[in-house]
Design a protein around this nucleic acid. Structure first.
Length: 260
DNA sequence: ATGTCACATCTAATGTGA
């Protein structure tokens, strides 16, 4: 039994209610099978479920008041939905959701930003990475078909940063964060966009301030990490910069991948 | 010199997080 072709994307929308029309337009144009969302910023009772169902998608969602929030949309059924790591440190922050769809375990993460290296939020970010790694240790088989995507709030290397000199040592670019992300990957997950595009920056985020997007002052912090088995099926992957243009964009662009 | 945005709150200007 072979798995069907898969077109998957991940997008930090910075508020699903503010971005509802944009996401619907993008779904209609790009026609992905699966879309993972981060920063939905809405409680579960207020998530606009119906409009996405009418567009032909099943939805699993997990939110909280004001901040964070994640969701997975799929044209196929979503099975075995999980909304936490299920560990002893479980808290109220809605940053993880996973489901099985189209023969693939899809995990959607919104990694804490960390604010600044000397902030307690930075320690929380590193601890959260550690919990994610332990979760993957018990939930991901190297030989299986699994994918972890989302906003990791880490630019893995200098190539992923518009001005590495200016960003050196700052949150999103520290050695500690890069090492934590490397431990998440281990030998079970690979960074698909970088693997397929080894020489291009492929930024996925641009600051709203100081004309970040027009000046292309971006970072590559949104990633699609795949098991070797799924990676072997990869056809292409990229960033849809067009979706960052125009009126009232998110500060992130969708990152996508296609598998045969 | 935050050239910004979303969301919440004692619904208007401010705080928070990014």
């Amino acid at each position: 039994m072979s798995a069907p072709p898969l077109h998957v994307a991940t997008w930090n929308v910075n508020g699903i209610r503010a971005r509802e029309a944009r996401v619907l337009d993008w779904l209609a144009a790009a026609q992905p099978d699966v879309l993972c969302l981060q920063e939905t910023k809405v409680t579960d009772d207020k998530f606009p479920v119906e409009v996405f169902r009418e567009a032909g998608y099943e939805i699993a969602w997990h939110g909280q008041p004001k901040y964070n929030g994640v969701a997975i949309l799929s044209r196929a059924p979503l099975d075995d939905v999980e909304v936490s790591f299920g560990d002893a440190e479980d808290d109220e922050q809605a940053r993880f959701i996973a489901a099985t769809t189209m023969g693939v375990r899809v995990m959607c993460a919104y990694v804490p930003n960390g604010q600044a290296v000397d902030s307690p939020k930075f320690a929380y970010k590193l601890r959260w990475f550690d919990r994610l790694t332990r979760h993957l240790d018990t939930h991901v088989e190297v030989t299986g078909s699994a994918l972890l995507c989302g906003d990791f709030n880490v630019a893995p290397a200098d190539l992923d940063v518009h001005d590495p000199q200016a960003w050196r040592g700052h949150v999103l670019c520290t050695v500690e964060e890069r090492e934590a992300l490397a431990r998440v990957c281990g030998d079970r997950l690979l960074d698909l966009v970088r693997r397929l595009h080894p020489g291009s920056p492929m930024y996925s985020w641009w600051d709203y301030r100081q004309l970040g997007f027009p000046k292309n002052r971006g970072l590559r912090i949104d990633h699609i990490l795949v098991t070797p088995a799924l990676g072997a099926r990869a056809v292409d992957a990229g960033v849809d910069r067009e979706a960052r243009k125009g009126k009232q964009p998110s500060d992130h662009a969708p990152v996508w991948a296609r598998f045969a």
